[in-house]
Design a protein around this nucleic acid. Sequence first.
DNA 1: ATCGTTGCAAAACCTTTGCACCAAT
DNA 2: ATTGGTGCAAAGGTTTTGCAACGAT
Lengths: 140, 140
Amino acid sequence: MVQDSIRILQAQGHKATRPRKLVLEILEEMDRPLSPYDIQGVLRQRGKYLNHVTIYRVLDILCSLNLAHKMLSSGGFVRCSLDMAEGCHRFMVCQHCGAIREFADKELCQGENEFARNFGFHAEHHHSELAGLCSRCYRK
Amino acid sequence: MVQDSIRILQAQGHKATRPRKLVLEILEEMDRPLSPYDIQGVLRQRGKYLNHVTIYRVLDILCSLNLAHKMLSSGGFVRCSLDMAEGCHRFMVCQHCGAIREFADKELCQGENEFARNFGFHAEHHHSELAGLCSRCYRK
DNA sequence: ATCGTTGCAAAACCTTTGCACCAAT
DNA sequence: ATTGGTGCAAAGGTTTTGCAACGAT
């Protein structure tokens, strides 16, 4: 919830400002990875405005506190989504329509962790992208 | 091997040019994901030169033929590596020293495929990044 | 009142496009 | 000779930086 994130922000010495509340609201409501300009667009539709620089900075803070997570989308720009599964971010990206859907799974993480440990690597965060076709585009 | 890739290029109607050979050589030799400017830098050290636009275009072709694979690195730019494991690209990225190491595993892919199929999604390519600490940095 | 935040302008950076020249076939 | 490929210049788009004004505490 937005209130929880705000509380964490404040506990870390950050202020509870209008831009931060707005960005958190949009991220929670849309429930999919959004770019800074996506967020600005949603706000514009609602007659609200935030400078893109501000959005970048809000997202940076959210990510630094692990409240959100960045992914680099195929367009080559950043998208952010709230961190719901503690360091496990898996995305299904449809190569046809571009739809992005996020999921999480602890067993997959464990499997990856074991594999990495064979190389002496200690994994903390998991980010995975599956490129393929979503159910709708597959039928065509 | 570079020669094999060149042969595939030619079979698809592309020419075997100096820039394409050079890029393939560097990718094979360095054996880690490289950005276009990384590649240009390595060449420069050897007294050779390729325009960055050319490198971008060579990488695009290699990726379109599945000879290489693009990843969007944490710096926000593209890195490419040769495709050794047919659509399975897993990276361990050390958060401390920045080292990137690639691995592949069919079982992990199968696990992800099954999970995705529950959502009606048909996965073709896997790209995964584990952020954590490499063996050297973990000891410190 | 203080000090972190925001917005604006401008810069920096990566990537793409247009076009004339060049080179592999 | 033909056709695709390269290099250059310039544009496009995303992200970052510097700074004055603002606002949460």
